[in-house]
Amino acid sequence: MLALNKSTVFRIVSFTLAGGDVFQTIPGTYALYRKQWIRRRLSATCLFYAIARYMSIGSLIANGIDAFSSGYTLESCKHLYMAPNVTALLAGMAVQVLVYIRTYAISSRSKYVRYGLGSIMLLGFPIQIFGIAYHRDPFFSNRSCKGEVLHPGEPDWNIVYYSAAPMSFDLLAFATATYYLVYASRIQGVM
């Protein structure tokens, strides 16, 4: 029987919202794919959108299996414990590429944005991989299986993944896009 504690209720609500979002976006996603299929040319935006979408769905499914399954064995845990983390990592990287593409377009294809922001994004990818994978071992309890840092005295490097690389890149992309939007509106006399 499933115990309804705060964590379980939060998971059920978040899975419900995410599932609703997936179903709500099916018509738009289908239209995007159909447009790409007619042209017989896959755009980078479509490719990274698909990666972000399906890796996010995979991450939610892996998290749900981990949270609500009681059939894990120590051996199966060793093979599956990184699935939620890796799929979330790939989805996050795809979203960062989409943010980069959009910021580059807003900047009117500025070479500074192309090379500067692009370099920062690419340099952040290994840092994110390090934050997710370094010293992460399978932690198997009576009910679930997840990756945790189990080495004594070792900090949890998830902070590097969640704050240092993606948040820094997002903040820089936001500032860059805002600058170019304000700059363009001043040139056109709107502001």
Rank of each mutant, 00 (worst) to 15 (best):
N5K: 07
K6R: 09
S7Q: 07
R11W: 14
V13I: 15
S14Q: 10
F15D: 00
F15M: 14
T16H: 00
L17T: 05
G19F: 15
G20N: 05
G20C: 11
G20E: 03
V22I: 14
F23E: 09
G28I: 05
A31T: 07
A31N: 14
Q36I: 01
W37C: 06
I38Y: 03
R39W: 00
R39S: 08
R40A: 12
L47Q: 07
L47K: 10
R53P: 01
Y54N: 15
I57M: 03
G58L: 09
I61M: 02
S69T: 11
G71F: 05
Y72E: 01
T73V: 07
L74V: 14
S76F: 02
S76M: 09
C77A: 11
C77M: 07
C77V: 13
C77K: 10
Y81C: 06
M82W: 08
P84V: 13
N85L: 09
A88I: 10
L89K: 02
L90E: 04
A91I: 05
G92C: 05
M93Y: 07
V95D: 01
Q96E: 15
V99Y: 03
T103L: 01
Y104N: 03
K111S: 14
Y112G: 11
R114M: 13
G116V: 08
L117P: 01
F125Q: 10
P126R: 14
I127K: 03
I129C: 08
I132L: 04
A133L: 15
Y134T: 08
P138H: 03
F139V: 00
S141A: 05
K146P: 00
G147V: 12
H151M: 11
P152K: 05
E154Q: 12
P155W: 12
D156V: 04
N158W: 07
Y162C: 05
A165G: 13
P166H: 12
M167C: 12
L171G: 13
L171P: 02
F174Y: 11
F174C: 13
A175T: 08
T176R: 00
A177V: 03
V182A: 13
A184R: 14
S185A: 11
